[in-house]
Amino acid sequence: MRVWPWLLALAFTLWVLLPIYLIALSAFSPREAVYAWPKAFLPGSLSLETLRFFFGVEGVWRATATSLVVAGLTVAFSLLLGAPAGYALARFPFPGRDAFRVLLILTRAFPIVVLALPLAVLFLRVGLYDTPLGVALVHTALTLPFAVLVSASLFLSIPKELEEAAWTLGCTRTQAFVKVVLPLALPGLAATAIFAFITSWNEVFAASVLTLQNKTLTAYLLTLLDESPLPFKFAGGFFLVVPALVFLFLVRRYLFTLWGISHR
């Protein structure tokens, strides 16, 4: 009877999962297995050799540290700017509120490819070129629209009366926010944070164009990709994919509410 939807779903699932599986398999296989053809579909012998080699390469640790700094800064900026903006969108009717919402999404209409070169010139001039801060600012520009919209819908879902009750019980606006709204918003804000982290972690174009010495892991791997051996590519690919998977698993509930389908 209704077998087609299931088949379709299965096809899509395989489409996504198969490459990930193969990458993971290769990352944990010894060198010879990576080069072997035809590929073994089941792990023959697991080994950490490939991963060990990956982390032994000059500059990988430094790039990982840079990636962490950039992603951390991106998370901080996204939350510190995005949450208050989302709160304002949720609680205060101001002229042009709906237009503002649309504008937020429109910012994503400018491809980063177009923006990166002028930005590189500008960053060179103001001394942000080749700094983690510079890259983090660009990444924040990418994540901020979502941070604002997600936290706006988050704050909308917290009844205003809870805040008002806190005011009548002796809270200032700030105290009410910290004692009542924040604890309730925390899971959603965490999701926003992880989203910002992953976006920054995976972004490669801006990070490549705007840095020279201080490359993030993705940008660094890109420069190495051509001349590096196959096992290294697999190990690097695996290391880039894992955070995204963990993130998706953690926030799938919030993503569903975000698109208007309620969870539970």
């Binding site: 009844p159 009366e161 809870l162 008002e164 009750a165 806190a166 005011w167 009548t168 019980l169 002796g170 809270c171 200032t172 009542v180 604890p183 309730l184």
Partner: peptide, 20 residues
Amino acid sequence: LPPRLRGIAMVFQNYAIFPH
């Protein structure tokens, strides 16, 4: 004056009890 300085307390229609 803001609510906190008025010496009032309020019971809301939906109770507004803090769920956390």
